[in-house]
Design a protein around this nucleic acid. Structure first.
Length: 208
DNA sequence: GTTCCGATTTTCT
DNA sequence: GAAAATCGGAACA
């Protein structure tokens, strides 16, 4: 499979998010090549999306979201965790897709060692877990995934059954259903029950 | 099984 | 100074 191209990312963010399902993250690390298939994502935009970091415009942190599409946007959260996004939309327009969960494919022993546990369904079932398993941190912020050798994406086949729901862990923009996941996959984020309870109960629809 | 809670630090107001 | 696109562990049932 070829890499996802610049034009793939240079589109309306929710569309890119949905099409990223089934794509493969590649991360050479510790003498191995880690690979994982994306099963859960969320879209974030700009001025029209109060849940987005870019809602209030360009800052030092969000400048990557306004730049060229196809770049890694990595940020640090809650004192412990990194989250991996890929930028979208044409240059000058804010957008990014948060990679929330993936299915381990290759380099599994390295991931297990990094995470300190062996259960496959718990290795990358959440944005913080995924970055820890793949050794992704702030040094990769701004990395161009269209050409990088450290971190990139291979085009994949979008799953037949895609679930849609509201985004997890946000306190504003809670009614916007921009979370997409492979329905029935055991690798999606278990996401605390209380995150779903008053919302979309794990998704309600099939799109695509 | 579910629910609650604290860690820890960057970024922006 | 407050909030944050989270996680793992502890408590309880």
């Amino acid at each position: 499979m070829p890499r996802a191209s610049r034009s793939f990312f240079s589109r309306y963010t929710p569309d890119v998010a949905r099409d990223l399902l089934g794509c493969v993250i590649v991360r050479p690390l510790d003498g191995a090549t880690l690979r994982a298939r994306i099963v859960e994502v969320e879209a974030y935009r700009g001025a029209d999306d109060p849940a987005s970091h870019a809602y209030r415009g360009i800052t030092k942190r969000t400048s990557v979201m306004f730049g060229q599409p196809g770049k890694a946007y990595v940020y640090f959260i809650f004192g412990n965790h990194y989250c991996l996004n890929v930028t979208t939309e044409v240059e000058g327009v804010a957008g990014a897709v948060l990679i929330r969960a993936a299915e381990p494919l290759q380099g599994i022993e390295v991931m297990q060692k990094r995470r300190g546990l062996s259960e496959l369904t718990n290795l990358m079932s959440g944005p913080g877990k995924l970055t820890k398993a793949m050794g992704i941190d702030a040094t990769l912020n701004g990395e161009d995934m269209v050409v990088s050798r450290k971190l990139y994406l291979l085009a994949g086949v979008v799953p037949k059954k895609i679930g849609v729901s509201t985004r997890i862990g946000v306190s504003v923009g809670v009614e916007t259903e921009w979370r997409y996941f492979e329905q029935g996959s055991p690798f999606v984020s278990g996401a605390r029950m209380h995150n779903y309870r008053n919302r979309a109960a794990g998704g309600r629809g099939v799109v695509g």
